[in-house]
Design a protein around this nucleic acid. Structure first.
Length: 287
DNA sequence: CGATCGCCCTGTGTGC
DNA sequence: TGCACACAGGGCGATC
């Protein structure tokens, strides 16, 4: 479940290990991994070969590497995607989808993805609101780690929506980078139930939940991200430690760290929401 | 256009 | 032991 902090850890690793290197050869082992690259695997491989990789960038949960021709190698990790830096000759991972070999003969870049929700693509870079973005990312809002992130504008956009606060937090066109884990953690810190309507939140309360989302993601980044198993790892295959700090996510039946009430899990959008029923009372009238 | 819903995937865990 | 099914869930296309 890579969300902003986990993707940022991967971005830093890419920046450190691939920036400045020239691609020699690309191998696509599973077509679904490049399904967003509409011209197909052969086009993907031939256009990437010979390009140099420049800076690694990120917005929300998307990351990309600028290429020497002005385009970008765009990646989304989905649920289980990994970008690994491995020595040539290391055994192929079971779910290895794309391999990038470099002209210097050094470590390869490997895209590994068990559940195949993630993928790579080559994309044109366009300018949106003063920021260079790969075209498929143009509709994604700035994330709270972006120096140009405007909290007041994000609060206003959230309150304009006729929806529930958790849906708003997960909507990448309002604020990007927040997924199910950090949404639940931010709501717990804000003492808000996921079904509270955004339109009824005060400006102050909406700003508070956004600030909590930002804070929890910053703390997670400081711990190297959240990991429940070996699915989420940095480019060297190492896991983060923030799962030890989670207050509600995955904590059903455990006592709330504030009031001792048992944390509950409820179905939400075909997935789960975790909350404290006492600190985060369900709004009246909500189903 | 805003909001909602179903689908895309595979490995793991659980209950019968 | 083996089978069926729930679950993990981000993003996007279709639909109203």
């Amino acid at each position: 479940m890579p969300e902003l902090p986990e993707v940022e850890v991967v971005r830093r690793g890419l920046h450190e290990h691939v920036a400045g290197r020239t691609v020699a050869e690309v191998e696509v082992l599973h077509a679904r991994a490049i399904r967003r690259h509409l011209p197909g695997a052969a086009d993907f491989a031939s256009r990437l070969a010979g390009r140099s990789m420049l800076a690694a960038r990120r917005r929300g949960k998307y990351l990309w590497v600028e290429l020497s021709d002005g385009d970008a190698l765009l990646a989304h990790l989905g649920m289980s995607g990994q970008m690994l830096v491995q020595p040539p000759g290391a055994p192929d991972e079971k779910h290895l989808r794309v391999r990038v070999r470099f002209a210097d003969g050094g470590p390869e870049l490997r895209f590994v993805d068990q559940r195949t929700f993630g993928g790579l693509a080559l994309a044109e870079v366009v300018e949106v609101d003063g920021a260079p973005l790969p075209l498929p990312v143009a509709h994604i809002a700035r994330d709270p780690m972006d120096p140009a992130f405007d909290p007041d504008a994000a609060v206003a956009a959230m309150r304009r929506r006729r929806t529930d606060v958790k849906r708003a937090l997960l909507d990448q066109t309002l604020v990007s980078g927040v997924g199910n884990i950090y949404a639940d953690e931010a709501l717990w810190r804000s003492r808000l139930h996921s079904l509270r309507p955004t339109a009824k939140l005060t400006r102050v309360k909406a700003a508070e939940v956004l600030a909590h989302a930002t804070e929890v993601m910053r703390e997670a980044l400081g711990e190297g991200g959240t990991s429940f198993d070996a699915l989420y790892v940095d480019v060297n295959g190492r896991s983060g430690y923030f799962d030890r700090s989670l207050n509600v996510y995955g904590q059903q039946h455990r006592p709330c760290r504030r009031c001792g009430t048992a944390i509950v899990r409820e179905p939400f959008m075909n997935r789960s929401s975790y909350s404290c029923p006492r600190c985060q009372p369900r709004p009246r009238g909500a189903a």
